[in-house]
């Protein structure tokens, strides 16, 4: 069952949003629900930071930048986004699949 919010959103084959600028917090919630990832305030610290970085640099932040800049450390980041934080955090934040290796 797809959330009606997601019906008008375009995704690539891996489930990443094609147009990051079309993202809203509601879409983020709906993607997280699709990924069976209940969001907490701590998830939003990461998601909001990723969005903020994207707005400023047109690029998703690296995980290292997230853990260096926010108070979410590596261990917590992996707990928040099981199945690979680089992929999952970017996906929920409506950003493309990350290409960096740090």
């Amino acid at each position: 069952m797809t959330n009606p919010i997601l019906e008008n959103v375009e995704f690539d084959d891996d489930g990443f949003m094609i147009d990051p600028n079309a993202w809203t917090a509601e879409i983020g919630e709906a993607i997280a629900a699709r990924e069976e990832l209940p969001l907490t305030d701590r998830h939003w610290v990461v998601i909001n930071f990723a969005r903020q970085e994207f707005d400023a640099n047109d690029e998703a932040p690296t995980l290292r930048r997230i853990t260096k800049t926010t108070d979410v450390d590596t261990k917590e980041l992996y707990k928040l986004f099981p199945g690979g934080p680089a992929k999952k955090a970017a996906m929920v934040a409506g950003l493309g699949k990350p290409t960096g290796c740090i």
Binding site: P82, G83, G84, P85, A86, K87, K88, C101, I102
Partner: peptide, 12 residues
């Protein structure tokens, strides 16, 4: 280290 980190970041 780089390979291990990349793998973990994508859930491997």
């Amino acid at each position: 280290l780089i390979l291990a980190n990349s793998a973990r970041m994508t859930g491997i």
